[in-house]
């Protein structure tokens, strides 16, 4: 039935599916980054390091307990805890001085990356998958085989995106966060414990990064340098999609993930240029990002 489609079509489908997988991962990584930026105007350069920490912790937990779900949870919690410490211990003291926060978070990411290299070494880790997620599916209609974990990853990203949207649009905490994005001073004047809310949002961003790390370690693999890869992708995703918007992060991740995979498949030595070109075009046409709001 698929013989008529030819090799080109199959390649295109596989590349598109790979692009969607990557986009799901990029979305998971970038959503926390974007959330923190949206509320606090903090560019958390340690976001990639939080992700890698989550991945390593998740690996170690799965390795000891054998439970994948426990690994994802503990990876997320470890990164959430680290994120809360970063905000409460360092960045919170420099609130409002964005350049200083950026530099401090760079220093933290250098230290974290080096300490993780010390503890976990320079090896490449892959988290062992549970029975249900290993193996693959032959996709109906499309007729190409695909790994279960990658499908699960897409579902996970979708669920996370919806949950995040629900949290921000429909809950009381979300209302406070949105109010903080619009007018921080007024929120403070109304007596909201804004410092505690900041720490909480930082922990939430860390949780998303940490879980993304464990999932990246399951679907692909992690090694020193993974932190940089996801920091860069998060940067480009939020520049393209618009800062502080969940929808923007999803759209940006989709564009960057697909561009990277098409680039890799059809122009292997110029792949990085595609991602870069998307960013430049968006900046030229819409500097605030596709779904971002213009700066006051």
């Amino acid at each position: 039935m698929i013989t008529g489609m030819g090799g080109h079509m199959t390649l295109f489908l596989i590349v598109t599916l790979n692009g969607l997988t990557l986009a799901a991962l990029y979305f998971l990584a970038a959503s926390g980054f974007s959330l923190i930026f949206g509320l606090m105007r903090t560019v958390n350069m340690a976001h990639g390091a939080l992700l890698l920490l989550g991945g390593y912790v998740g690996y170690s937990v799965v390795d000891t307990t054998g439970s994948w779900a426990l690994g994802v949870l503990s990876g997320g919690l470890a990164a959430a805890f680290a994120g809360a410490i970063v905000q409460a211990g360092v960045l919170g003291w420099m609130q409002g001085d964005e350049l200083r926060q950026t530099l401090a978070s760079i220093a933290i990411s250098i230290i974290m990356a080096d300490l993780m290299l010390w503890y976990w070494g320079g090896l490449t880790y892959q988290v062992e998958l549970p029975e249900a997620l290993s193996g693959g599916q032959r996709l109906p209609v499309l007729g190409v085989g695909y790994a279960n974990i990658r499908l699960a990853l897409m579902v996970f990203a979708l669920v996370t995106g919806l949950a995040l949207w629900f949290l921000i649009q429909r809950t009381r905490l979300g209302a406070v966060i949105r109010a903080g994005v619009d007018d921080q001073d007024m929120l403070r004047a109304l007596g909201f414990p804004i410092n505690r809310i900041f720490i909480l949002v930082f922990a939430l961003g860390g949780l998303l990064a940490g879980m993304a790390g464990v999932i990246a370690a399951s679907a692909l693999s992690i090694a020193p340098g993974t932190d940089l890869q996801f920091l860069l992708s998060s940067l480009v995703v939020v520049i393209v999609g618009g800062m502080g918007s969940v929808g923007g992060a999803a759209l940006g991740a989709l564009l960057v993930g697909l561009a990277e995979q098409y680039g890799l498949a059809y122009a292997p030595t110029y792949g990085a240029v595609f991602t870069f070109a998307i960013m430049v075009v968006v900046l030229a046409v819409r500097p605030q990002g596709l779904l971002g709001r213009a700066e006051k």
Partner: peptide
């Protein structure tokens, strides 16, 4: 911070480009 993010993205994209 926007300038930081954009120049960083340019710098790292150049790094990946030279590698490829």
């Amino acid at each position: 911070i926007y300038a930081i993010m954009i120049t960083l993205a340019i710098g790292v994209a150049f790094f990946y480009f030279t590698r490829q």
